[in-house]
């Protein structure tokens, strides 16, 4: 006799869990498109594949040596990487120059410590619609694109930091 309310309770909880799961699925579906995977060679000679960073928050910084605002963004993301690197934040620079030597020279001069991937064929930048540089794409731990930013002013930088901290805390 006493098991009935328990079973009813269990059922209602299961139903509740189901509703929660459905809401969760709907919410995750609304979070953003999944980031297309790619593999690129880097200036260091190693190859990098985006999907290997699933479980970490990734910032893709699309840039080129001829883009005036790009150097500032590279330096900004180097600072962010140093601050948040040990809590699961990864930065990958995607360079669109035809000559890899230019990318290496500029990244070296700016003291960049994150990998610079070479997209001279521009396949990845086309996939991510990097028409205007710099382009910053923030990807969450589940591999979903959560934010896109162009060159940032002070106010936008604060917005980016809020986005980034939220993603790291998730």
């Amino acid at each position: 006799m006493q098991t009935r309310p328990h079973r009813r309770g269990a059922r209602s909880r299961l139903a509740f869990a189901g509703v929660l799961a459905a809401i969760g699925l709907a919410a995750s579906a609304a979070e953003g498109p999944s980031a297309p995977d790619f593999a690129l060679a880097s200036t260091s000679g190693s190859n990098y594949r985006l999907s290997e960073y699933r479980g970490e928050v990734v910032a893709l910084v699309f840039w080129a040596s001829w883009c005036g605002d790009c150097r500032r963004e590279l330096e900004r993301f180097e600072r962010l990487r140093r601050t948040y690197g040990n809590v699961g934040f990864v930065v990958l620079g995607v360079n669109l120059d035809q000559e890899p030597a230019r990318a290496s020279a500029l990244a070296g001069a700016a003291g960049i410590g994150f990998p610079i991937l070479l997209d001279s064929a521009k396949d990845v930048s086309k996939t991510y619609r990097a028409d205007d540089l710099p382009l910053i794409v923030l990807i969450d731990r589940h591999g979903e694109i959560r934010a896109r930013h162009q060159a940032l002013d002070e106010r936008e930088e604060r917005g980016l930091l809020v986005d980034l901290r939220d993603l790291i805390d998730e």
Partner: peptide, 22 residues
């Protein structure tokens, strides 16, 4: 290993880059 390009009947079907982990 850096990459493998695979051709079947002279048509490229795969061009795979290997990361350090792979």
């Amino acid at each position: 290993l850096d990459s493998v390009q695979l051709k079947v009947d002279d048509k490229e079907v795969s061009n795979y880059l290997y990361t350090d982990r792979e």
